[in-house]
């Protein structure tokens, strides 16, 4: 089943073309890695799939629903964007609870479970402003997975994590794959890409080239 499909997508930024007529299809249960040099447009690609940014031309379809005026954001997608932000004076749990309160599909226990899964203590009253970068990143991962999202779009999810946490996240993503979740990710670390991805695409001169 096609979970994410880009057809003839073109996008430029302030006169510089980032993507020209790009096609990409991601099947259910795949882990797809996107690589490319800094500024090549990895984050822009992810933001387009999330519906934050519109392509200049072409279509983006998620679960057979085309993003556009009637469907701005794809449903049940877990996202980590490049600059995770939180309400600084609230604890990690309170931040997640506020997000969970929007869809109301999970309980406090589910939030706690998601926090434990990424290596955070749900009972920790520490405010997010006192979190280290790694803890903030873990919190970002927790919000992306806590509602059992079946598509995960993870932009630099491994950033700022210590070695043990990287290994744990890799295991977690592989277990998600077994559950049939679809994952698209970027990482500066080639090892992450090699260890996880079924297929790898490299952004090169506005095109997506399959390199693995």
């Amino acid at each position: 089943m096609e979970m994410i499909k880009l057809e003839q997508v073109t996008k430029g930024y302030q006169g510089n073309p980032l993507f020209a007529d790009v096609d990409l299809t991601i099947q259910k249960g795949d882990i797809v890695g996107i690589t490319g040099p800094n500024g090549s447009g990895k984050s822009v690609l992810f933001k387009m799939i999330c519906g934050f940014i519109h392509p200049d031309a072409g279509t983006i379809t998620v679960r057979n629903e085309q993003l556009g005026p009637t469907r701005r954001f794809p449903e049940n997608v877990g996202v980590i964007i490049d600059r995770p932000g939180y309400i600084a004076h609230k604890s990690g749990f309170e931040n997640l609870k506020q997000l969970a309160a929007i869809r109301k599909v999970i309980t406090d226990a589910d939030i706690e479970q998601a926090m434990r899964t990424v290596g955070l203590q749900p009972g920790n009253r520490q405010k997010v402003k006192q979190y280290s970068l790694g803890m903030k990143q873990k919190l970002a991962i927790a919000q992306a997975i806590m509602e059992q999202q079946d598509i995960l779009i993870l932009d630099e999810a491994f950033n700022a994590l210590d070695h043990d946490s990287v290994l744990r996240l890799r295991e977690l993503l592989l277990s998600f794959k077994k559950e049939g979740k679809t994952i698209i990710l970027t990482s500066h670390n080639q090892q992450d890409i090699d260890a996880l991805c079924d297929s790898v695409y490299r952004i090169n001169q506005g095109q997506l080239e399959q390199v693995g």
Partner: peptide
């Protein structure tokens, strides 16, 4: 701060 994650939901 929390905007993007909120919009998606």
């Amino acid at each position: 701060a929390i905007g993007p994650y909120t919009w998606m939901r």
